[in-house]
Structures are given as C-alpha cells and as structure tokens.
C-alpha cells in the first residue's frame, strides 16, 4: 500500500466511451493480487474532491527507456466514462501527473485445487477478471470466461483473454456479439456441464444477484467483486459498507467494501436487500 505521485504512460480509447490507462506504478507487479483496486486522484485541485476507485486490470514491467535506466513497473486500468471524474480522466495524456493509492483491498482467492474456474463478467466488471485469468491459467486449464454486455461495444478485452488461452463465451442483450441474451443463461448451462466449478463474478448488482441465485441452486462456490461509493478506500470513513450475511434492519451487520472487500465470498453477504 502506497500513495504514489506518478504519471501516465498512455490513455487510449479502446471502444466508444471506454479507455485503457497505463500508469507508472513501482512495486505493483510484486504487490498487487487479482481483484485489488486503486484510488486515483486525477488532479490536485479540490474539485472534484474525492478520488475514484478502479479495479486493477493488469500489472507488468516495461523495459528501460534506454540502457542503464531501471525497468518500469506499471499498472493498467480500464474505465468507462460515466460522469465528471471519468470524463476528466479521459483527457489525461502521456506524462500527465496522477496520484495513485494502492493496491487496496482483498483480492480473489486463487486456490484452484477445488474445481474448474468459471469467470463471469458484466460490462466493465470484466476488469478485475483479467488479472485473475492471468494468474489462473498458470495453474490450471482450461479457464473459462462468460462475458455479458448490452451491446458489442460493452464487451471488452475478449481477444486478450483468448490470447491467454481462456475459453470465452459472450452474450449481449441485442445479439450484436455472441449469443443474444443474458450471461446468466450461459452460466446456467455451463454449471450443468461442470457441476464442480468455482465461480468468480464482477458486474452490476442485479447480475451478481442472479449469479448468486444460480450458484446457490447449483451448490457451487462464488466469489464476487463489488462496487460501492467510496471516499477513502482504506477503511477510515465507513462510507462503503454493504450488508453482511446476518444483516437485519434492527440488527445491522455491515462489511467494509474497501477493506474487507471488494472481493467477498458470496456466502458472507446478504442478498435479501433491495439493490438498485
């Protein structure tokens, strides 16, 4: 965990409204585990005030710029422009200064001895699954990715998963890529075929809830990566809590998404609460 003053390596639009941002990040390749996130401060002014949380897409090391110089560790983020902060981010250019707090939170449990891994991503939720896949393919084959999105533009990085040797299955709402329908239909089919699978999911809350219901029915283990409004990302403000397993309105049981998550064992959370 570190708060680095760092700079932009590249910031490319990879699909309409989606960007891929590379930042110099010394130490990240050794420290970061799949499922962790960072808090990005785009600029040093007071408005927008809060940092923005983003999942880690990938980490790596670039060769030195010229001989004699050190190698350059980096972290890659993939983000969707949805509001003021991400719009400001989309204007970042190579060399621009950024503050980077991380790597933060608890990542995925990558122990693969149990059963074949099934990764389920919805839209931008695919982000933390890429680093997870990089890790899993070194331990087990095959790794399968089920990817859902509204349209083909919302289905990101599939070719990169394929390059890793991941078997990918895509579903879109409008059928513009892969089969038409929801990714949860694909999951249902795959679980019939691989009843001992372990599922890793990240995406919008309604999707996660559906994935959870399916996994409960099939009695398979599920880890989910959640999003929550965050101010600090380090467990100080308690703004990011989610209801835990024993949560009742008169007996609340809250978990901190930034510190105890963002990846949770689905059994530790409450799925009764209305998520909209």
């Amino acid at each position: 965990m570190n708060d680095l003053q760092t700079s932009v390596l590249y910031n490319r639009e990879i699909a309409p409204g989606y960007y891929r941002l590379g930042l110099l990040a010394p130490g990240y390749p050794e420290q970061a585990v799949p499922g962790q996130f960072v808090m990005v401060q785009i600029q040093s002014q007071n408005d927008p005030l809060l940092r923005r949380p983003f999942g880690i897409f990938n980490v790596g090391t670039l060769p030195p710029l010229c001989s004699g110089l050190p190698e350059r560790d980096y972290v890659e983020l993939v983000y969707k422009v949805v509001g003021r902060g991400t719009r400001l981010m989309s204007a970042l250019q190579e060399g621009d200064a950024v503050r980077l707090l991380g790597p933060l939170g608890q990542g995925f449990d990558c122990n693969t001895t149990a059963g074949p891994p099934l990764l389920v991503g919805g839209g931008i939720g695919v982000v933390p699954l890429f680093m997870l896949a990089c890790n899993l393919v070194k331990q087990t084959q095959p790794v399968r990715l089920l990817m859902g999105g509204r349209r083909c533009d919302d289905v990101l990085a599939v070719t990169e998963f394929e390059r890793l040797g991941v078997e990918t299955y895509v579903a879109t709402d409008d059928g513009s890529l892969g089969e038409q329908g929801l990714v949860t239909q694909v999951l249902e089919r795959k679980l019939k075929k691989y009843p001992t699978a372990r599922v890793y999911a990240c995406g919008p809350m309604p999707m996660l809830k559906a994935v959870h219901d399916i996994c409960v029915r099939h009695e398979v283990a599920l880890q989910v990566s959640l999003e929550a409004l965050m101010a600090c990302g380090i467990g100080a403000c308690l703004g990011c809590v989610v209801p835990g397993r024993r949560h009742r309105s008169d007996q609340p049981d809250y978990r901190c998404t930034c510190k105890q998550g963002p990846v949770f064992d689905a059994r530790d959370l409450s799925w009764e609460v209305d998520h909209d």
């Binding site: 965050m230 308690l238 703004g239």
Partner: peptide, 23 residues
C-alpha cells in the same frame, strides 16, 4: 452502533456529505 443504511456519502462541489451514522 451500526450506523445508517447506504448510500452514506455523496460528493459535492469541493466537499462531501456524509451520513455514516456514527457507526
């Protein structure tokens, strides 16, 4: 004390609102 339900925070112009509820 369990605190308030979520959302508990909102960003505002050069500030933020919190209703953590003293958890």
């Amino acid at each position: 004390k369990a605190g308030n339900p979520t959302p508990r925070i909102a960003e505002t112009s050069a500030g933020m609102l919190n209703a953590i509820g003293l958890q």
